[in-house]
Design a protein around this nucleic acid. Structure first.
Lengths: 331, 331
DNA sequence: CTGAAAGCGCTTACAG
DNA sequence: CTGAAAGCGCTTACAG
C-alpha cells in the first residue's frame, strides 16, 4: 500500500508538503506539480482512517432511517447518497427498525466522532442523547434541543387532501394514521386535514393505529386497520366516502382491504395517501397522493448539514412544497 | 472524548490490557472486571479510526448497487444492513448508477483498505480493477477473476415462467429484457425461458432493450419498449398472448402500456415479471412474477463475505431457490 | 499474564 | 513557503 511517505520520497519533498497539496493548502506551483505527478504515478489514495484519526474529519455522514423497505425512505437515502457523492462524502446507513435502542446506539456511534454529521428520521425521544458538537439534521422530527429540521409541507398536504375529497363530492371523510405520536411535523397532516374539514363543515373523523412506523405485510397494524374497516360497514354500505391515509403504504393496505370487501375505488370510496410514490418507482402513481419532494428534501438535508459542519447557521425549520398527484383512487 | 488511556488510568492497568479486553483476548478475571467497569463508568467507545489505522480491520463493509430506486436493490441493501448489524458491522452504501467510472472508484476505495469487504452488483467489466486481497462477493455478476457469486435460480425462474404461460393457454410468447449483456447469472432467465419453449414447441421470441439496468420514468428504455409494443399490434390484435419480463419494473412498464393500448391483462395478454415485489412492499404482489429470495440472498452474501474475511474458502457460485407468485397478471 | 514501547498514516503547529 | 517533529488513539510484538 502506498503511503504519503512514498509520495514524498518520490516527489522529493516532505510529507508535510504532500499533505498540503492533498488538502488544497497553498504550495509553490513547481512542488504542487511534482507531488501531483507522484500521486498519479504511484496511484496514491489517502488513508481515511489515518486522516480520520488525526483530523477529526472523516468525509462520512450517517443516516438513520427505520428501514429501506418503505419506498419513501429508500428514495430518501438514494438521493442523500447522490448529494453526498457529489461533494465526495460517503454514507453510512443505519436502520433503526424504529427501535429506541438502535437509534441510541447509532447516535452514540456518530457522537463518538465516527462521522462528520448525521441525518436522521427518528421516532423516539432521544433528546438527552444528542450533543452540541455533532452536526445533525432531522427529517420531520422535532427534538427538544435545537436540531434543525427539514420537512415537506405537511399542513398544506393535509389541507389539500381534504379539499380534494370535498370538491369531488365526499360527505363523510376520515383521516387514518399510524406511527409514533411524538412531536413531529407529520402530525400536521392531520391538523391541516381537520382544519379544512371544519372550515367547510363536512363530517369528518380521525383514527390512529399503532406505533409501528413501518408497516409490515401481515403485521399488527395492518390487522387492526383491516378490522376497523370491516367495522365501518353499515348495511352493506361503507360509512365513509373518502379516506386520507397518513402514508401511501397505509393507503395501499386500505385500498386492498376495501376492494376485498367488494367496494369500488374511487366510486364508492376515494382514497388519498401521502408520499406520492409510483408503482415500483417506474410506473404510474400507485394511488392518489400528496407528493413529497423527496429529492429536494434529500439535497436540502445535505446542504444544510454541510453548513452546520462548517459552523454556519441555518434556519431551524425548512418546509418544502407538496402537491396532489392523481393515482386513480380519486374521482 | 474518553480514550483507552483514560480507561487504563481509571482501571489502574496499562492500555495494552484494556486493548486486550476490548478484543476479547484473555486477561485475568479481576483485571477484566475492573476494565469493564471503567469502560462503563466512563462511557468509553473505541475510536474506529484509530483501530482501523492500526489493525487493518474496520468492521465496515461497502455495497455497490446501481441505486436504491429499484425496489429490489433497496430490499437487498436493507437486509444486508440487517445481517451486518447483527454481527456489529457497518454498511457504506455506494450507488454506481451503472456507471463504470463510479464502480471503479468505489472498488478502488474499497481496495485501499477502507473497508473489510465488498458486496457488489456491478454492470461493467471491471475485472482488472479487482485485487486478490479484498474480500468480494458478487451478486449475479461473474468476474473473470475468481469472485464468489450469489444469485437466485435464474434458469429455473425463466423455465417456470415459460411453463406457467404455456400451461395457461398461451400460444405465442415473448421474453423481453433490458440491461447489460455482460456475463451474468441473469442471462439465464432467458435461457431457461427459451429452453422450456423449445421443449414444448411453442412459438416464442426474445427482445432486448438498452443497456440501462435501472429503468427511469420517461427514460429511453421505456420509450423503446413502448414503441415496440405498439408495433406488435396487428389488426387490433396483439401478436403475443404472454410476456415474460426480465424484471418486475420492466413488467410494470409493459403492463401499463398494454392497458393504455386497450388490452386486458391477463385476458388478452398475460405478463410475468422477475423479482416478486409487492405493491409499496406492503401490499399484494404488483404483478405475477418469479420471486427472488432477497433476504436469503442478502444474508448469504454477508455470511460468505465473513468467511472470506476470515480466510475460509467458499463455493464459487451459490444459487438460491425462486418461486412463482401470482399477482393477477396471469390467468 | 501484563506492561512499555513502537508504529499505523496522516495533520498541524512551530521553526527556519 | 517548507520541513522536522509531535501526536491522534489504537494494536501488537517483545520483554519481563
Amino acid at each position: 500500500m502506498v503511503t504519503i511517505k512514498d509520495v514524498a520520497q518520490d516527489a522529493g519533498v516532505s510529507v508535510g508538503t504532500v499533505s498540503k497539496v492533498l488538502n488544497n493548502i497553498y504550495v509553490t506551483a513547481v512542488y504542487k506539480e511534482k507531488v501531483e505527478q507522484s500521486i498519479k504515478r504511484l496511484g496514491y489514495q489517502v488513508n481515511t482512517y489515518a486522516r480520520g484519526l488525526k483530523a477529526q474529519r472523516t468525509n462520512t455522514v450517517a443516516i438513520i432511517v427505520p428501514d429501506l423497505i418503505s419506498p419513501f425512505f429508500a428514495l430518501l437515502v438514494n438521493y442523500v447518497e447522490q448529494a453526498l457523492a457529489e461533494i465526495n462524502y460517503k454514507l453510512l446507513i443505519c436502520n433503526s427498525h424504529c427501535k429506541k435502542e438502535k437509534e441510541f446506539a447509532y447516535i452514540n456511534m456518530a457522537k463518538q466522532n465516527k462521522v462528520d454529521g448525521l441525518i436522521c428520521v427518528t421516532y423516539s425521544n432521544s433528546d438527552e442523547y444528542l450533543s452540541d458538537d455533532l452536526p445533525i439534521i432531522s427529517i420531520d422530527r422535532h427534538f427538544k434541543s435545537k436540531v434543525c429540521c427539514v420537512a415537506s409541507d405537511n399542513y398544506y398536504g393535509g389541507k389539500i387532501a381534504a379539499e380534494k375529497l370535498i370538491e369531488t363530492g365526499c360527505k363523510n371523510i376520515i383521516y387514518i394514521r399510524n406511527g409514533s405520536t411524538i412531536s413531529s411535523e407529520t402530525l400536521k397532516r392531520g391538523q391541516g386535514f381537520m382544519d379544512a374539514c371544519k372550515k367547510t363543515g363536512i363530517d369528518y373523523c380521525a383514527m390512529e393505529f399503532g406505533e409501528e412506523t413501518t408497516l409490515e405485510k401481515g403485521g399488527e397494524t395492518e390487522h387492526k386497520v383491516c378490522r376497523f374497516l370491516e367495522e365501518c360497514m353499515n348495511h352493506d354500505k361503507f360509512v365513509y366516502d373518502g379516506i386520507f391515509a397518513s402514508s401511501d403504504s397505509l393507503g395501499q393496505i386500505i385500498i386492498e382491504k376495501l376492494k376485498q370487501m367488494g367496494l369500488n375505488i374511487p366510486m364508492d370510496v376515494q382514497v388519498i395517501g401521502y408520499d406520492g410514490l409510483r408503482a415500483l418507482n417506474v410506473g404510474a402513481y400507485q394511488l392518489s397522493s400528496i407528493k413529497q419532494p423527496v429529492k429536494d428534501m434529500a439535497f436540502t438535508c445535505v446542504n444544510h448539514l454541510m453548513k452546520l459542519i462548517n459552523k454556519e447557521t441555518i434556519e431551524d425549520l425548512t418546509i418544502l412544497p407538496v402537491s396532489f398527484v392523481d393515482g386513480g383512487t380519486t374521482r
